[in-house]
Design a protein around this nucleic acid. Structure first.
Lengths: 346, 346
DNA sequence: CTTAATAATTGGAACGTTCCAATATCGTCA
DNA sequence: TGACGATATTGGAACGTTCCAATTATTAAG
């Protein structure tokens, strides 16, 4: 069954032209006569020719592959990010090489090495936790365009596209304060990441400007997952002076917090205000619909891809550090019932 | 900055050996002397050599890439599937080429073509809706090993790995019946898929063996997503004779159903029994924890990858059609409160 | 010592494409 | 008619690797 490869030479012979002409047709050159082009295309279809990109890559040193490496594909935020990247990369005639590191930097190293071997012409990376500038140095020196998304790395010397985490957290907490909350927790996330640090900064700044103290007891880290959210809220409810609202590290945590609340017969939105971060697809349809800081993962993927494509086209570009806007979308999980209750209490 | 490529010849020159020897070292051949190997490896590191897979692929017609194409990466079921595939494929020294079709068969065609051009040595496909045997024919004829997952395609002539959808649905509905439910709905999913058809068959068979009628009014299709679940349950609650329980097409729909129930002040698990399908990660931690038919997406990905790898190694293998076991995992969403209430009613 | 066997190493051809410079074909204008 | 430009086409070299057959160095056996 596995017949031997049909090559450009076979096509040439069958169509009665030279291999150069066939090559020209393949790249859609305008140099070739309409009639010849039609003839060649017909033969290509007839013989079931499959273009060999390895050969082409070898000759011209550019590959039409872009790589994207994410730290946790299981988190829908990153899945959506990948979908966004795919969309624009695809329509630019590139193909996407996606790898998941599962937060393991060893795995990340392998994956990046493999992508380089395959000659990707650019890389979009959402780095695993603990990745340092030194880890990326060889890659960066090789001159391959790289765009960091979601998590920036200091002095890595590459472009980055992150969202304005501080501003988002600030807006969210201000909103809670305006609704009368005084005991506001920050739940979930690992403290050793830059994203955590930035969101935390916004949280603290909002509290400070309202003259509230940001006691560390109200900051409770956990895995940035649904399960992590459950444990974080449980811990929060053990405090003698309980919070009445929480800003969560991300939407997954927020969903977990809602779950944990319900497990204690508390209704999120009514008995306790919760705000998430990211605005993943489910945030809108969940019940109660999640109030969250919208980061638009898909849009972020698209913009990262556009940025990368621009750099690829430009050859060598100055690294840009873009921080994307973010907006608080108010839905039900910090609902008006809370507002009333919280005001009575305070 | 973008210095020119270091090739195997540069290494050879610097190490004082021939390019053939360097090549041997690269592939870990036992033919080469220990001292030489060490020397060459040192030079490789020193010059920052990057292996060129395009060139290698060109020479030997096998590529160490396996492709995986999924129909909806946004659905965590498929994201987990991909993670499972990645794990085993990786440890076998292959790398994964992942593409998302978003259920568009046009896109699927492009993506598969692109993968063939890159010389993938095998393909795992979760086909887009409406894919037919004819769509895969050219691929299959080329002799590239293909494993279909999740959705099978009749007479495609390739291996497939699907789960026992009928048995899962059967067990789930039997369980509901044993708990006293008589009006059981089937919610969500598109009716034109084989998966829907199989789950539906299990649903009907269970009802029939209990002597219950499976009126079509209780079967309500929708998009297989969280949002789809919300609309499906809304529609179900409009019926004059309302159901007291539902088997959902998948977990996403089940979550949506829970959301929809809460929106009507009904507590899933207590006031209405809901069972999902797939057992995605969140099913366990959700509140109430979702009773669901476990398909183990990650495990499924692993097994699909193993099957594919086996076929790649064997050259040409007989297509196998594996249907994986499935088990009902009982958690809270069809809780005991329902049992009591339902019994009183009946 | 010679010879045979073994262990290491090697040059060159091949893989399927693209690119370059060169050539062929044609109509047009002086 | 000849020269010219424009339009199409072409052969061959090159890309970086692997593989084969051939060679050289080393050891063991006689």
């Amino acid at each position: 069954m596995a017949k031997e490869r049909v090559t450009v030479i076979d096509i040439a012979r069958a169509a009665g032209v030279s291999k150069s002409t066939v090559s020209l047709v393949l790249q859609g050159s305008s140099l070739v006569n309409e009639a010849t082009r039609a003839k060649v295309n017909a033969v290509i279809r007839e013989l079931g020719y499959v273009y060999n990109r390895s050969a082409a890559n070898l000759r011209q040193a550019k590959s039409k592959i872009i790589g994207i490496v994410v730290n946790d594909l299981t988190n829908s935020f990153f899945a959506e990010l990948a979908v966004g990247v795919d969309a624009v990369v695809q329509s630019a005639g590139f193909v996407q090489f996606l790898a998941n590191t599962g937060e393991k930097s060893e795995r990340q190293r392998e994956v990046i090495a493999s992508m380089r071997e395959h000659g990707v012409s650019g890389l979009i990376i959402s780095p695993a936790r603990g990745t340092e500038a030194a880890d990326l140095a060889p890659l960066v020196e090789s001159g391959i365009p790289v765009v960091l998304v979601v998590r920036d790395i200091a002095r890595a010397g590459v472009s980055s596209l992150i969202s304005d985490n501080r501003a988002g957290a600030l807006a969210a907490v201000r909103h809670l304060i305006a609704r009368g909350h005084r005991r506001i927790a920050f739940l979930g996330g690992f403290a050793d990441t830059a994203v955590f640090e930035a969101r935390m900064r916004g949280y603290r700044d909002a509290l400070r400007e309202a003259g509230l103290n940001a006691g560390d007891d109200l900051v409770i880290g956990s895995a940035p997952s649904r399960a992590g959210g459950v444990t974080a809220i449980e811990q929060a409810m053990m405090l003698e002076d309980r919070p009445t609202a929480a800003l969560c590290f991300n939407d997954a945590v927020a969903f977990g917090v809602c779950d944990g609340l319900r497990a204690r017969r508390l209704e999120p939105g009514a008995d306790f205000a919760v705000i998430g971060f990211d605005d993943v697809i489910e945030a809108k349809t969940a019940v109660p619909a999640l109030t969250t800081v919208s980061v638009d993962p898909q849009g972020m993927g698209e913009r990262a891809a556009e940025l990368l494509l621009k750099q690829i086209k430009a050859g060598r570009a100055e690294p840009e550090a873009i921080v994307g806007p973010v907006r608080l979308v108010i839905r039900q999980s910090c609902g008006s019932a809370v507002e009333r209750r919280a005001k009575e209490v305070s």
